[in-house]
Amino acid sequence: MKHVNFFNMMLVGLMCISCQPDTVCHETRKVAMQCHFREYYRVPSNVQLNVRTEWDSITVQGIGSDSILYNNTKQVSHIGLPLKDNADTCAYLLTYHQKKDTLTAIYTNQQRFLSIECGCVYNHKIVQINHTRNWIDTVIIANDAVMLEVDKNIILQRTKPDDE
């Protein structure tokens, strides 16, 4: 019965393995509509359009909120716009080069349980994006699922005027 003793020894080792489950939340819980930027601009010496994917500065405030989400933030390639969990529409005021545009998202909500340590978050599914056209030309929905794993939901496109 040497094998029984061998297995018993193995088990003593296993007893040393910690068996207490982790009780700390390691996941991020900030679900936001990930908004990217694409600006086409023309260099005088070149006929073709160039593309820039960073705002040189952007200010974002939720309509109906007193606090500013991004305040003249420099050199950002994307911004996260949290959507209201208890509503199906949410609007932001985006200011770029002193021009203001309103971006309105219409969406559905779905609660998602992460774990007992992390609790719940709300995922969203974008139905429609409406916007004014002071500096935003087009909004492209790249991925309508607003959730933790998705890093690109919409792309704001504009063509920089020659006189700007």
Binding site: K30, V31, G62, S67, P82, L83, D85, C90, G119
Partner: peptide, 18 residues
């Protein structure tokens, strides 16, 4: 039963439990 489950807060609303 799961009580006191944390609901993540955001820019629009504070964190809560359910």
């Amino acid at each position: 039963d799961l009580t006191g489950v944390r609901m993540a807060g955001s820019y629009w609303q504070p964190a809560s439990t359910r």
